[in-house]
Nucleic acid binder design. Structure first.
Length: 614
RNA sequence: GCCGACGUAGCUCAAUUGGCAGAGCAAUGCUCUUGUAAAGCAUAGGUUAUGGGUUCAAGUCCCAUCGUCGGCUCCA
């Protein structure tokens, strides 16, 4: 993905940019304002981030022992004070101190002391990033009476941050060092831009992003519904959403048939023993629905599909002639995510993975891996997704989260690297992002709100074949152990559709649109003709509705526009007499009358080619 | 799960310091028979998330539960 290099370069430039300095400096001035209002506040860290900055504070506890938090009024006051402080033109002065001097200077700032100790021991820097070497001196930045442990960079004078280009956005809790077992601090997020106009532009972009939020569009377009009575995180697919999802499923099924995948269908529950044997259970115990105890036997709502597919592999003796064996299923799984983690369709408790498990010989591994990546690229290209990056997730040798031998991991990572390099792909390598059973290559998409979502994934697995003692008979007549590839191009149908909604702002390409055309009869008199045309189009496989409401034509068009229906086919006396439809697209283009057959042929061609333009 | 904000009709939102729960859209009925983004009139729609409490009086104040939203954490 050529995208990624660009991003990395952009990030490097960002960290050296004036804007980055402004945001870093704004964080310091905000902390200064906070300290005025909360003199007892302890400072944690306050870095620039994409589009802004934050600073974390510990405000201590009230008489009842509850953490003191920022109110909305506090935020307004802090923001107002910050503006005043920016205008008073203080100079930012850098200097460095020995570790001991720094310990003295920050003696009543416990979080800073912890950072200083870690710098001295060479673990992490003041921003929390890993460093290689212990340091003997630490950087500090001072403006007025405010001093912070910091290596900069900053602007020279506070005035260089425009007071009218600063806005504090929100507060939230945030764990110290990102660790939920440690103190929860109070974070303030803010943003700074070079000037007021750019700030307003940014706020407008946020507003626009909210307008294309898939939860909002999902309601407006009648795609899905989440009922608290059914269960939070358990979406209900409405007819139009179901059509969209099934269309995607059909598309992938077809692509898989062409590539030698075989369908299987397996149940949504399995005995607990199955997951104990696979090793999934102890790893993910906390994020699973509790086992169902029936007559002394325990069953799990399945959190993944792999063990079921493995049992299919094991159902008969396998020969090298059977491999690669590619078993595919849209398999629904259940994971009890923490309540605060749920989010529309993109983070749910019951979802369907476009899952497949490939059982291959070690010799076939690399080639099969390449084919899977090519399938994923084909899927993304066809659907029109572009803002993706690829990530190679490896195990963290320090962590006990990962099973299997070092050789297994090495072989797996090696296979992925060879495959990705062979395809000339750009990818980042991230330690500690692997599955517990093996390394993986993930495809990560950025949504309208700039959040990143992992969609497609391909994983190499030497472990489960061992756990389940999988075998095949080789050409040599000996027993051999296959390797597994786990893969899901969409990742999950729920998440993928959620992202798809935002990507297209609800205006799906014709082939995916839940309703592809609406017939709009001008008066009651034309309803029969409209129905006749609709039926003709339906017989060719198109998804067509007739607007038989009592509305006037203008209102029917408005409704179809709001529903983002690709084609509006207006029919009145003229069309009925000539056997035509007056074609209008959602891009507000009146294309005039076309014979029904001509429109149909044109539309079917676009559908077949997965075209995104009408 | 944690921090904060919030929960009023199907949807979007009103309701002054605690004092009769409202509007637009959608729905239904009637009239109009209409040419490219909203016709008119009428009707119906509510245990103000749920449960408890304070008060002469609670949508409004307090407590709990459920849920939603923004973050944090997590994401097989």
């Amino acid at each position: 993905m050529a995208q990624e290099n660009g991003n990395e370069q952009a990030n490097e430039r960002y960290e050296e940019s004036e804007l980055y300095r402004m945001r870093h400096s704004a964080a310091h001035v905000m902390a200064e304002a906070v300290l005025e209002q909360f003199p007892e506040a302890k400072l944690a860290i306050g870095p620039p981030i994409e589009d802004g900055f934050y600073y974390d504070f510990d405000l201590g506890r009230d008489e009842e022992g509850r953490p003191i938090t920022f109110s909305e009024a506090d935020l307004e006051q802090i923001e107002a004070r910050m503006r005043q402080l920016l205008k008073k033109n203080a100079k930012f002065e850098a200097s460095s101190l020995s570790i001991d001097e720094a310990r003295g200077l920050f003696e009543d700032q416990p979080y800073k002391l912890e950072l200083i100790e870690e710098l001295a021991r060479g673990k992490v820097d003041e921003m929390g990033n890993a460093i290689a070497e212990p340091v003997s001196e630490v950087g500090i930045y001072r403006h007025r009476d405010f001093v912070d442990l910091c290596r900069g960079p900053h602007v020279s004078f506070t005035k260089q941050v425009k007071a009218n280009a600063v806005k504090l956005l929100r507060t939230s809790g945030a764990y110290w060092r990102g660790d939920e077992n440690r103190t929860q601090l109070q974070r303030i997020y803010g943003t700074v831009w070079p000037n007021r106009v750019e700030l307003e532009g940014y706020l407008k972009r946020l507003e626009e992003a909210r307008a294309r939020d898939h939860r909002r569009l999902g309601k407006q377009l009648g795609l899905f519904h989440i009922s608290p009575l059914v269960g939070t995180g358990l979406p209900l697919w409405l007819p139009k959403g179901a059509v969209l999802r099934e269309t995607l499923e059909q598309f992938l099924r077809q692509a898989q048939v062409e590539r030698g995948y075989l369908p299987v269908i397996t149940p949504h529950v399995g005995k607990l023993d199955l997951y104990i044997k696979s090793g999934h259970y102890p790893y993910y115990k906390e994020s699973q629905y509790a086992p169902l105890d029936m007559d002394g036997e325990e069953f799990l709502l399945r959190p993944m599909n792999c063990p079921h597919h493995i049992e299919i592999y094991r159902s008969e003796p396998r020969s090298y002639r059977d491999l690669p064996l590619r078993l595919a299923e849209f398999g629904t799984v259940y994971r009890y995510e923490q309540s605060g983690e749920l989010h529309g369709l993109t983070r749910v408790r019951g979802f369907t993975i476009d899952d497949s498990h490939l059982f291959v010989t070690p010799e076939q591994l690399e080639e099969e891996f390449v084919r899977v990546v090519q399938l994923i690229q084909y899927v993304f290209n066809t659907i029109g997704f572009s803002d993706f990056r690829a990530r190679l997730g490896t195990n963290d040798p320090e962590s006990d989260k990962y099973a299997g031998s070092p050789e297994m991991w090495e072989k797996g990572v090696d296979a992925i690297r060879k495959a990705a390099d062979g395809l000339s792909m750009n990818y980042s390598v991230e330690t500690g992002e692997a599955a517990f059973y093996g390394p993986k290559l993930d495809f990560i998409f950025r949504d309208a709100l700039k959040r990143e979502w992992q969609l497609g994934t391909v994983q190499v697995d030497f472990l489960l074949p061992e756990r389940f003692e999988l075998e095949y008979t080789g050409q040599d007549g000996e027993r051999h152990r296959p390797v597994m590839i786990h893969r899901a191009p969409f990742g999950s149908m729920e998440r993928f559709v959620g992202i798809l909604i935002e990507h297209y702002n609800g205006a799906f390409p014709l082939w995916l649109a839940p309703v592809q055309a609406v017939l709009i009869p001008i008066t009651d008199r034309h309803v029969d003709y409209a129905r006749q045309v609709a039926n003709q189009l339906r017989e060719s496989g198109m998804r067509v509705e007739v607007d038989e409401s009592g509305n006037r034509m203008g209102a029917k068009i408005r409704e179809a526009q709001l529903q983002k229906v690709p084609y509006m086919l207006v029919v009145g006396d003229r069309e009925e007499e000539s056997g035509t439809v007056a074609v209008r697209t959602r891009e507000e283009e009146d294309r005039g009358a076309l014979p029904v057959e001509e429109f149909q042929a044109h539309a079917l061609e676009l559908i077949a080619s997965h075209a995104s333009e009408l």
